[in-house]
Design a protein around this nucleic acid. Structure first.
Length: 555
RNA sequence: AGCCCGAUGGUGUAAUUGGCAACACAGCUGGUUUUGGUCCAGUCAUUCUAGGUUCGAGUCCUAGUCGGGCUGCCA
């Protein structure tokens, strides 16, 4: 990010500024608390980056904490995947990698504390009974018959829960708050449940596990988190978050602040829906370049910088935001424009023969690797008698303002020379097979002394001096801006979201490496896919170039 | 229906805290150009509604309307 970049201002930073002015904090500490049960997506990156950028800008600390309180869903492989994604994003947490499971003992002791304070009790109600007793949105709940057990009995029962004397679901530990509270989260929430399940870190050490609400805020307090920044759906949990902080002897008093999640047009974001895409075989796994997962974007050739910029531009508020995916495209192009080496590749080849060009000869022309950045250097591009141009760069009967090749018309072959179309070769069905052309020997180097204007410049690849490529062309996964506008998002899947084509690239492409951003001139930004092999280089289209001509044509 | 939250162009975010509604994306026009790219210029709003306070309201007050979240032993 450049030096001139201004720091974002938002309501959370305003709060921090006020608290800092009032001398409330010495350092600002934020955190990202994923549950290791799935892959991170672009929505998470907003949470990651707003937390991280605040820690950075205030010279504070950023913690990564695995919120692993549910052994039935979590797994070490997800921990590793999350760490990889954050590392790729360029986020650093130093020594501050924590696990909620590291706090199990402390949390257990705090549960005992609440029991001793008569603020927690063991409840024998079944799942169904608890639901009944809870009441609903409009009606208050009623007290469990087990609510008034004595401290000693509760201590004894809770110890037995911990010792594995009961089956899953037989009993829970609940906070004693208020069964008539208008906020359902305050109606004696469950603190601990019995789960005879091996935990990926603590193995069989525990058979009772704390609930999110009982673990999260206390974890924050243990780590000295000053601002526990999370998404809007936890808003109703804040009174409970605060209740624990007030009623437990915790070492610090973190503050939870909620902001709205990020949504993107033409995209689904929930873990459930993403999983349905993977399991239904609609995409080729979590790292499919069409997925909004970080692992998918990385494979597709997105840069971490573009995601930082996007996240910054999205902003932080409490309004429900649905951001136009074109903003992400913009951030990507803006970054790639400055980083990508320029190369030529023909994606939909049409053969051209230059009749006055000597057979079997190869002329090499020098072209800059970037039109505006000299330090990128140059590379040599071969011109031969037979070559390929893009099929839509020739029209037999061109409309107004078509600047490309047409019968009798002259265009510039980028970096090489001017050619004029002389003849069109067709098959019996009228399909164009080949263009017969002539070049102007005086135009070698792609300009002439007479200074005549050639409006069109097209790219080309030699028919003999080239490298074949497999190119995967991606489009929106969903047709509608809102994939669920007409109901089921699966019905809205774009059947053309992936098109695999065979293309020809200039020889220099043989040297391309995984991760190199490349622009196929006039076509878009591309990057090598890990599926590439000795036999075939595979490219993903990261994003197309802006295309004002194509846009005009489609109308 | 109860509780909580939100409402500024097509989209997202601003507005010195009561003083000419700004920036960006998208769209549209034009200019430059060996990428129909990049770059540059122009254009695009009765601040959800109705009342009120005030010299002056996006901002304050009142009443409504619309949208989102919450009834897991998930996070």
């Amino acid at each position: 990010m450049s030096e001139g970049d201004t720091r974002p201002t938002n309501f959370i930073r305003d709060i921090i500024d006020e608290e800092l002015a009032a001398g409330k904090h010495e350092v600002i500490v934020t955190r990202f608390p994923p549950e290791p049960n799935g892959y991170l997506h672009i929505g998470h990156s907003k949470a990651i980056l707003t937390n991280y950028s605040i820690a950075q800008d205030y010279n504070g600390r950023f913690h990564l904490r695995m919120d692993d309180t549910n052994p039935s869903k979590e797994d070490m492989s997800y921990v590793e995947a999350i760490i990889n994604d954050l590392t790729w994003l360029g986020v650093e947490w130093g020594e501050s990698l924590f696990f909620a499971s590291d706090y199990y003992q402390q949390l257990y002791e705090w549960a005992l504390f609440l029991i001793n304070e008569c603020r927690a009790y063991v409840d024998d109600l079944s799942l169904e009974e608890m639901k009944e007793y809870r009441g609903n949105l409009t009606e208050p709940g009623k007290n469990s018959p087990y609510r008034d057990r004595g401290v000693e009995e509760n201590l004894d029962l809770f110890a037995k829960m911990k010792n594995g004397e009961y089956e899953d679901g037989a009993k829970v530990l609940r906070a004693k708050i208020d069964m008539a509270h208008p906020n359902l989260n305050m109606r004696d929430p469950v603190l601990y449940r019995i789960l005879h399940h091996n935990h990926y870190r603590t193995a069989d050490e525990w058979c009772i596990y704390p609930m999110y609400d009982f673990a999260h805020g206390q974890g924050d307090a243990i780590e000295g988190i000053t601002h526990s920044i999370c998404s809007l759906e936890f808003e109703n949990h804040r009174p409970l978050y605060d209740w624990f902080i007030e009623n437990l002897p915790v070492p610090s008093k973190p503050r939870q602040i909620e902001f709205s999640r990020l949504n993107l047009t033409h995209t689904v974001m929930s873990k459930r829906k993403l999983l349905a895409l993977v399991e239904g075989g609609y995409v080729n796994g979590w790292d499919d370049p069409r997925m909004p997962t970080l692992i998918g974007y990385r494979r597709r050739g997105y840069t971490p910088e573009s995601i930082h910029e996007f996240s910054k531009r999205a902003g932080v508020t409490k309004q429900n935001q649905v951001i136009d995916i074109s903003l992400l495209d913009f951030c990507l192009r803006q970054d790639l424009e400055l980083k990508a080496m320029r190369r030529m590749a023909v994606l939909d080849p049409l053969k051209v023969t230059i009749t006055n060009f000597p057979e079997g000869e190869v002329e090499w022309y020098e072209g800059p690797n970037h039109p505006g950045i000299e330090s990128f250097g140059t590379r040599m591009v071969p011109l031969t008698r037979e070559l390929y141009i893009e099929r839509d760069d020739f029209m037999e009967d061109p409309p107004r303002k078509y600047f490309r090749l047409a019968p009798g018309r002259e265009v510039r072959l980028r970096y090489a020379c001017y050619i004029t179309a002389k003849e069109v070769v067709k098959d019996e069905d009228g399909n164009i097979l080949e263009i017969i052309a002539e070049f102007d020997p005086e135009s070698r180097g792609a300009s002439t002394l007479d200074g005549r204007k050639v409006k069109g410049t097209i790219h080309f690849v030699s028919a003999s001096e080239n490298v074949p490529l497999e190119v995967r062309m991606y489009d929106h996964l969903f047709l509608n801006e809102d994939p669920e506008a007409d109901g089921d998002f699966i019905q809205n899947l774009n059947p053309d979201s992936l098109k695999v084509i065979t293309a020809y690239g200039e020889p220099e492409l043989k040297g391309a490496k995984l991760g190199d951003p490349i622009q196929f001139e006039r076509k878009g930004y591309f990057s090598i896919d890990p599926d590439s092999s000795e036999e075939m280089i595979v490219f993903n289209r990261t994003v197309g170039l802006r295309d004002s001509w194509g846009k005009k044509q489609r109308k």
